[in-house]
């Protein structure tokens, strides 16, 4: 894997870790106790973050894994790895 792809890969991983922390910590620490129009803020926060996970996966695919896949497929062709 070339350095550029490795670096993008690392950034994506930290992106995921950040989102996970933003998702879990308010629940564990009991933050966002209030309501907005009668709906608990924590619920809205968690649903938004949950949707962000899907968005990050879409970004991750186009930003990182298109390049990664090309690298690996080239490697497989080169080494003639087949069943």
């Amino acid at each position: 894997m070339n350095e550029e792809v490795k670096s993008k890969n690392r950034r994506l991983f930290f992106g995921y870790v950040t989102l996970i922390l933003l998702y879990v910590l308010p629940y564990i620490l009991g933050l966002f106790q209030g309501t907005w129009r009668g709906v608990p803020l924590l619920l809205l926060w968690m649903m938004t973050l949950s949707f962000s996970f899907v968005v990050l996966t879409v970004i991750g695919y186009f930003h990182v894994f298109v390049d990664w896949s090309k690298d690996v497929d080239a490697l497989i062709d080169k080494e003639e790895i087949s069943k």
């Binding site: 994506l12 998702y23 924590l42 949707f51 996970f53 899907v54 996966t57 894994f65 990664w68």
Partner: peptide, 28 residues
């Protein structure tokens, strides 16, 4: 209620995360 959202909402990140970083090595 929210207790299950913590689990279920996380599967949206849990599955791609695992597949990207672990699954592709297994595939290789």
């Amino acid at each position: 209620g929210l207790e299950w959202l913590l689990t279920h909402g996380f599967t949206g990140v849990g599955t791609p995360l695992l597949l990207w970083f672990i699954g592709r090595k297994m595939w290789f």
